[in-house]
Amino acid sequence: MERRALFGGKLLPYSLLLPQFAIVVVFFYFPAAQAVWQSLLMQDAFGISTEFVWFENYSILASNPEYYKTMGTTAVFSALVAFLSLAIGLLLAVMADKQIKGATIYKTMLIWPYAVAPAVAGVLWLFMFQPSLGMLAKMLRGWGIDWNPLLNGNHAMILVVLAATWKQISYNFLFFLAGLAAIPKSVIEAAAIDGARPLRRFWTIVFPLLSPTAFFLLVVNIVYVFFDTFGIIDSVTGGGPAGNTTTMVYKVYADGKLGSDLGGSAAQSVVLMVIVIALTAIQFKFVERKVQY
C-alpha cells in the first residue's frame, strides 16, 4: 500500500515546497556559506581592507597549540554535560512518572529552568559559588575545601558543567516524561506479573522503548553543548582560568565578537560545523542501529 499524494503537475508541489525551501536557504545555507567565505578572508575590524588569503586562517589555527587545547576542553565539557543532563533528566522523569501527590507541581517546577536564558543561568550559579560572597562557596569553605574557580581549573570546569547541565535537565526531563507516558502500561504490568522487579522492568522494557527519545535527545544535547553554552561560559568564567574552560564555541565568540577577528573566528566556526556534522552522522550511522522504534 503506497501512500502518495496525487498532483496534476509539477508546479503545485514545488510551489508548496517553496516557503520551506526559502526558509532553509535564507536562515541556514546562506549564513553557513557566508561563514565559509569569511573564513577565507583576512579583514580589519571595520572591514576597510579585505584580503583573500585562501586557507591561511585554517593553517594559523592548525599551528596554534591553544586551539588543540580547546578541543580537549570541549570534549571533556561536552561529554560531562551531555551525560549528566541526560542521566539526571531520565532519573527525574522516571520519578515524576509515578503516581505521587502533587505530581503536576513537581513537573512544572522541573520544567522551569528551561525558561531561563543561558547567561542568566550562568550568573545564578556564579553567585552561588562566588568564592567570597556565594552561599554554596561559603559552605564548601566551611567543609575545608579551598573553593577557588578563579584560579583552579577543575573548580571552574565543575561550575560551568553544573550550570550548563542544570539548564538542560528540564528539556531532557520533558521529553523523557512524554516518552514514558507513551509506553503502554500493559507491557509493564505483564512484566510485573511475571515477577520482574522495578529495576529489571526499567532496563528490559522501559529503557529500550525510550530509546528513540533518548537518541533524539542525545543528538539535541550534543548540539546544545557544542553551540549554545558559550553564554554560560562567558558569564561564569570567561573561558578562564588559563583557558581551562575555553571551549571551541566560546573561542569562536571571543575571537570574533570580542576580538573582531572575523576571519579566524569564521574558520573556527567552519571547523566546529564540520565536527558537529560528523558527530551527528556517526550517531545516525552507529547509535541509531540500536534504537528500537
Binding site: 584560579l151 583552579n152 581549573g153 578562564g240 582560568p241 570580542l258 573582531s260
Partner: peptide, 21 residues
C-alpha cells in the same frame, strides 16, 4: 592592536603562573 584579545592571552598566562602550572 588586538589588545582586547591580548589582555585575555596575558590573563591566561598569569593564571597559569598563579596556578603553578
Amino acid at each position: 592592536g588586538n589588545l582586547v584579545q591580548i589582555r585575555d592571552i596575558w590573563s591566561e598566562e598569569i593564571e597559569a603562573a598563579l596556578q603553578g602550572t
